[in-house]
Measured scan of single mutants.
Amino acid sequence: TEIRININGVTIHVRDASEELKKLIEHLLRLGADEKEIREVLHRWEK
């Protein structure tokens, strides 16, 4: 699944996002995570 996240005008594009990762990101956004925090989570997730 491919997702695009727009945070304050900055688009983060994620290829091959699992449903689990998608739910995690949606949850973090609801909690008010910023772009830097989302990128950090994505970076750690890929490892």
Rank of each mutant, 00 (worst) to 15 (best):
K23E: 09
V10M: 08
K47V: 15
H27Q: 12
A17G: 08
L29R: 04
L24E: 11
V14D: 01
I38H: 00
T1R: 10
K23M: 13
A17N: 04
D16P: 07
N6T: 11
E26Y: 15
H13K: 08
G32Q: 04
L31R: 15
I38F: 06
I38Q: 00
R30A: 06
K22L: 14
R39Q: 06
T11P: 04
N8I: 03
V10N: 08
V10D: 05
L42D: 00
G9T: 05
H43S: 13
R4L: 13
R4M: 11
R39N: 07
S18G: 07
I3V: 08
H27K: 13
E20S: 08
N8Y: 02
K23C: 07
D34I: 04
V14N: 02
I5W: 00
E40V: 07
A33L: 06
R15E: 06
L24D: 04
A17K: 02
N8H: 09
H27T: 15
I7A: 06
R39L: 08
V10P: 02
E20Y: 12
E37F: 14
R15L: 12
W45D: 02
I5A: 02
H27Y: 15
L29Y: 11
K22E: 08
I5S: 01
S18Q: 07
K36F: 12
I25K: 00
E2F: 04
I12H: 03
I3R: 02
H13Y: 11
I5T: 02
E2I: 08
I3G: 03
R4N: 10
R15T: 10
T1C: 07
I3S: 03
E19T: 10
R30Q: 06
L28H: 06
I3Q: 02
L31Q: 07
R15Q: 09
E2S: 09
K47F: 14
T1W: 12
D34Y: 04
N6Y: 10
I7G: 03
I7E: 03
L24G: 01
K47A: 15
A33I: 07
I38W: 03
E19D: 13
E2T: 11
T11I: 11
L29E: 02
E2A: 09
H43F: 12
T1Y: 14
I38S: 00
I5G: 01
R4Q: 12
T1N: 10
G9F: 03
K36I: 10
R30W: 14
R44M: 11
E20K: 08
E46Y: 15
E26C: 14
V14T: 03
K36Q: 11
G32D: 02
E46Q: 15
E35T: 05
N6V: 12
K23D: 09
K36L: 08
H43M: 14
I12G: 01
N8V: 04
I25C: 01
L29S: 02
A33K: 13
S18K: 05
W45R: 03
H13P: 05
K22Q: 11
T1I: 14
E40P: 00
K22P: 01
I25R: 00
A33G: 05
L28V: 04
G9D: 08
R4E: 10
E20I: 05
L21N: 00
N6E: 10
D34T: 13
G32P: 01
W45N: 02
E2C: 14
E20N: 09
V41I: 07
I5L: 07
N6W: 03
L31F: 09
K22G: 06
D16E: 12
S18E: 05
R39W: 06
R30L: 07
L28Q: 03
N6G: 05
L29T: 03
I5Y: 01
H27P: 01
G9K: 04
I12R: 01
E26I: 15
I25W: 01
D16T: 08
L42K: 00
I3T: 04
I3H: 08
N8Q: 07
A33F: 06
E40F: 11
V41P: 00
E26Q: 15
E37H: 12
E19V: 11
A17R: 03
E20Q: 08
S18I: 04
E37K: 11
R30E: 04
